[in-house]
Simulated assay, not measured.
Amino acid sequence: MIKTSIAAALALALAAGSAMAEFKDFTVNGELVTKAQQEQVAADALANNPNPHGMMMNAELEDQVKQMIIEYKVMARYAKQQGIDKQDAVKQEISTMTDMILMKHAVNDYLKANPVEEKAIKAEYEKEAKRWGPKEVRIRHIMVKDEATAKDIIDQINKGASFAKLAAEKTLDTQSKDVGGILDWTSPSVYTGNLGDTIVTLKKGEMAKTPVQSPAGWHVVKVEDIRDSQLFPKYEARKEELRHILMQRKVQAFIHDKVLGADVKDAAAK
């Protein structure tokens, strides 16, 4: 999976900036702080928040941004009065920050020129829906550490032993141990590898004849019930999240392409 870079995250937040609260110009020691500057600081804050939508359009955010900028301006003025801005290490850091700011705005310009189209969002939604599948299952399983133990459990169940009782006694899955090995409704695609492949072959009430291996261990698995898919979200509920994911992909591809074309050399190389 491609992770979002800092620049991408900030640019994505900037793209949503128009939805934020109405900031007003103010001054600090006679220095003007514009509405646009406040929106920029707010966008940066939103980009670093795991739930940005929860921070949109509220007076508390306005107050926090204003206070943050006041602190920046006051302390920056103090630093200049002390000559701190003339130190070599500080000048080098400022230069680095300038590059980051330019990168952020380059990404934002790219996003404005290359927006995610509705048809791309719908196509991604349809791919996700296909992966989820038309059916959901409710399974019962027992997870153990080795194949021999799993085979022995299958033999016991085939001879009449209670699946639920054996699950409570032997499974290593602590989440399902107290409910007889039951795992609640979900898509078979959620179960990766051999486990998912096996589940889709089983009918309602059927147990796999042999143990199934997963990265976590060996499983005795039975499909308790099957129904038409109900849990996969509707398009409108998923739309904006998919838009954001596709924007991330666009930005990462854009940055990656530019980096590939860069002339990067070891400074010590001749």
Rank of each mutant, 00 (worst) to 15 (best):
R131S: 12
E136I: 06
G160D: 13
E147R: 06
D173E: 13
W132Q: 02
A47Q: 00
A161K: 10
N114W: 02
P188Q: 10
Q175K: 07
Q40P: 00
G83A: 05
K73F: 08
E60R: 11
G196E: 05
G160R: 14
K165L: 13
W132R: 04
W132K: 05
I101R: 14
E169H: 02
I226N: 02
I6Q: 09
V221D: 02
R138V: 10
K35Y: 07
H256S: 15
A262C: 12
E241H: 07
A161E: 13
I94R: 01
G193S: 08
G133M: 06
F26N: 05
K234M: 10
Q67F: 05
K3Y: 07
K80Q: 11
D173T: 01
V41F: 09
L12V: 09
L14K: 05
L242T: 09
W218F: 15
Y235T: 09
L46E: 03
D88Q: 08
A268H: 11
N51L: 12
V190P: 00
Y78L: 14
G17R: 03
T34L: 05
A150E: 06
F254L: 10
A269V: 09
D263Y: 05
A148D: 15
D225T: 04
K73S: 11
D109I: 12
E236K: 13
A106M: 14
N194S: 15
A76W: 01
T34H: 05
E126A: 14
N58Y: 05
M75E: 12
V74C: 04
Q40C: 04
D266A: 11
Q175R: 10
S214Q: 07
K66F: 00
K239C: 07
D266I: 10
W218A: 02
A13L: 04
K250C: 03
K24R: 15
E71D: 11
A16M: 08
A47M: 01
K234H: 09
K177R: 13
W185P: 02
G30A: 06
S18H: 09
A123Y: 01
A47E: 02
D173M: 00
N51C: 07
Q248F: 00
E136W: 04
V190R: 10
H53S: 14
K3P: 01
I121P: 01
E117C: 05
E62D: 12
N114A: 08
M100F: 09
K119E: 13
R138E: 15
Y235A: 14
K104C: 00
T4F: 00
I6F: 07
A208G: 02
S5M: 02
A8N: 02
M57C: 06
R138N: 14
A36I: 07
G193H: 03
H105M: 15
E31C: 02
V90A: 09
K86G: 03
R140M: 14
G83R: 02
L242D: 03
N49K: 03
L183H: 09
V200Q: 12
A164G: 02
K127G: 04
R138A: 08
F163W: 03
H53P: 00
A164I: 06
T192E: 15
I245D: 15
I157H: 12
E126V: 13
D152Q: 12
L12K: 07
G133S: 08
A89I: 13
A120N: 10
A47K: 00
K258S: 13
Y110A: 11
Q40T: 09
A253K: 15
K73M: 15
V264T: 13
Q156A: 15
F23A: 04
